[in-house]
Amino acid sequence: MTEQTETISASECLIRMYDEQHEIEDYQKGVPRWCSGCGDNSILTAVQRLCRDEGLLPEKTVFVSGIGCSSRLPHYMNTYGFHGIHGRALPVAEGVKLARPDLTVFVNTGDGDCCSIGAAHWIHAIRYNMDMTMMLHDNQIYGLTKMQASPTSPLGLKSNTTPHGTYLEALNPLTVTLGVSNVSFVAQVVDWIPEVMYQVLSQAYHHKGFSFVRIIQRCTEWLPKLLDPWLHDRQRVLLLHHENGLEISPALAKSYTKMREHDPSNMNEAREIASAFDPIPVGILYRNDDVPCYEDLRHDSRLRTNSLIQKGLESEFDKFTIWADGNEPA
């Protein structure tokens, strides 16, 4: 057979481009069943917009989640999705990525899912630094199971398991993440500033490595008032900006005047910012593009042909073989 190179006309090319141009509807599926006003809705909108703007092929994109209200997100994406078991979204996503580096992987997880039952995986995912974007939908409560305290619940919060208020200081997901070796991207956003959420998710997506985005998310069902003080007082949000971080639009700058220039390559400053909750720091806290990705470290560029496998296997058999008379290789 002679080799054929595919040539297409300019007009056909345009048609194809048009065909491959996706609309936001192409990424939507079903009707979300979250409570009205739930912050998960705005996260969904942001990622659908991101997929469209980046022109992600739906069949090459996988959303992996655990269990919780937040983990329902993959069901509303018209991409591949994996809605697994409580706490284990990250190792599933790592398996997907190691097997198929060609796929774009997102992870959606809750504060219980990630910071409690899945905490070990969270620490190690940071260390593996595999190329994926993780969204921590942090509503500071267990939503799906009806209002139990989570590790990120503020001290004293009354819940169904802590009717007299929680006993322990909240766990800070940002400082924890920043404390793990190989950390390569850490950001924080709030669900009520969509512009910032979109921009941060976009940068997280473009970052090669494990991008950790904590999203402070409202649970209107169980904690309808918890975040009101921050929602209503714009001075209680601190915008982090930098030429290598968040770009603040003039419109945004008008509503949110509390800002701080922060270079995301500065770890010490990132840790200091991460430790404060009031005002809520929003933006990119840390970024390091030089941390190697586990899938690249383990990648083998050779084609895994049957003959490669056979060769390897035979040489192993040779090591253990007792040759019958006359069969001994020269």
Binding site: V62, V64, F82, G84, I85, R88, P91, V92, A93, E94, G95, V96, K97, L98, A99, R100, L103, A120, H121, I123, H124, R298, D300, R302, R304, L308, I309, K311, G312, L313
Partner: peptide, 24 residues
């Protein structure tokens, strides 16, 4: 032969990692 042994952080991770790779 181009294979990978992944030592996970625990057995739950090992199993779910394997499941993710199988799924993919």
């Amino acid at each position: 032969v181009g294979g990978i042994v992944h030592q996970a952080e625990d057995e739950i991770a090992a199993c779910t990692f394997a499941i993710g790779a199988s799924y993919a």
